[in-house]
Write a protein that binds this DNA or RNA. Sequence first.
DNA 1: ACAAAAGTGTTGTAAATACACCCATGC
DNA 2: GCATGGGTGTATTTACAACACTTTTGT
Lengths: 246, 246
Amino acid sequence: MGFNARDYLESVSLDCVIFGFHNSQLKVLLLKMKYTHEWALPGGFVKQNETVEEAAARVLRERTSVGDIFLKQFRVFSDPERSKINPAVKDLIESGDHPDMEWFEKRFISIGMYALVDFTKVIAVPDYFSEEAVWKSLDEIGTLMLDHNLIVQKALNTLRLQISYQPIGYNLMPEKFTMPELQSLYETILGKTLDRRNFQRKILSFDILTKLPETKKGGAHKAPFLYEFNIENYKKALENGLYGGW
Amino acid sequence: MGFNARDYLESVSLDCVIFGFHNSQLKVLLLKMKYTHEWALPGGFVKQNETVEEAAARVLRERTSVGDIFLKQFRVFSDPERSKINPAVKDLIESGDHPDMEWFEKRFISIGMYALVDFTKVIAVPDYFSEEAVWKSLDEIGTLMLDHNLIVQKALNTLRLQISYQPIGYNLMPEKFTMPELQSLYETILGKTLDRRNFQRKILSFDILTKLPETKKGGAHKAPFLYEFNIENYKKALENGLYGGW
DNA sequence: ACAAAAGTGTTGTAAATACACCCATGC
DNA sequence: GCATGGGTGTATTTACAACACTTTTGT
């Protein structure tokens, strides 16, 4: 594969905050970079014939091997200082041992994208510049490369805002899930607890869920019902907005 | 002045949808281009040491001669076909008569910014590529250059969304204004009429207005009270969100 | 004195919140 | 049988929407 700078638009990069949900925790997919061993967001560049969305979808497909994903741009990061790499890395690049890294010395404006994916379907794959791809829950994220901490922060804000006027969950939940599981997702994103009964009433009032006749057995205690999203209504809600805050 | 392509980041441009409010109409500042006489959004490019926001602020200062403005990025437009200029313009550029236009043959990703300005303070100034700068109300906007109609459309959507969770009006209204005037702004942006009494109650509940002892005389009929924004509370509301839809 | 615009108050309804009891399952 | 989590229902509070009358001012 390799990497050929000539294939891409100059000055523009992408950073993807890929959210997944597992064990009642919101997680973000991170890469551990070669040479520098810093943690970073999966990213990429825009090819000559791609839109930004297509480029991000390509990056996502390559890193997660999932296709149908929720993907949205949320902000451009353009501080001229943002791509000032740390001096040790600069030396490394300029030593000439890693000619494929020179591209990174330039200034980039980065388009922040966030994605919501079904954790259980993802097979995380590192890219050409990284040696490892790992899910980290929000509190495990330490210091990231460049301004990537800021990018994650802003992506989270956007997600929190989105949740108050659009449905969330399809793409983040497995196909079948229980009401408490979905509530747990909402609580994690919002960072607060919600009343069980009120949550159920409200989410059902949106008319985006189908209650299945089955229950989820195996877990301790009373078996909860399973639900799935009614994709038709869900998409309608995405377009029209939900109107209502938590 | 002139224009020197070397000063700017490649592949990246800016388009600004500058909203003003006058005579109960929402207006957008448009430029009439030299040579082609197409109407276009004020735009620009990002200098080597600028953020996107700084670049947009510079563009705005140059076009409107106002400084303190509400400015926000709302979306990146990156369709590879978007900057395909129309064939006649292409011929014009390639004829070589206008060497300063060659820059425009490249592909650009454009960052859509929208701005809210006090109409009464603006002195509209065309840029190096345009011969005229004019306010047009939404229904007067005809076909614009490139994908600028789409950009205006998306800016409006964003503004409509913003109005439901953040205060709007400071920067769009003159310092002192009457309640009906402010209501008219809201009605214009939302595209629907609102109940006078409910509007007043709601907007006052946000605690962002100060009622002045004066009334606006001179108009026919009963003299309405004047209000001004309480900037401190207004900014707080901007940050915290308003929570509530119209 | 009348028309047109602005000020103000009330009331019904719907949505959000708070809260309590019963049921199933694993240990 | 008891602790834990899940299912369901109801009362209270709060926000929204609909609506009517009075006041001021210009003609």
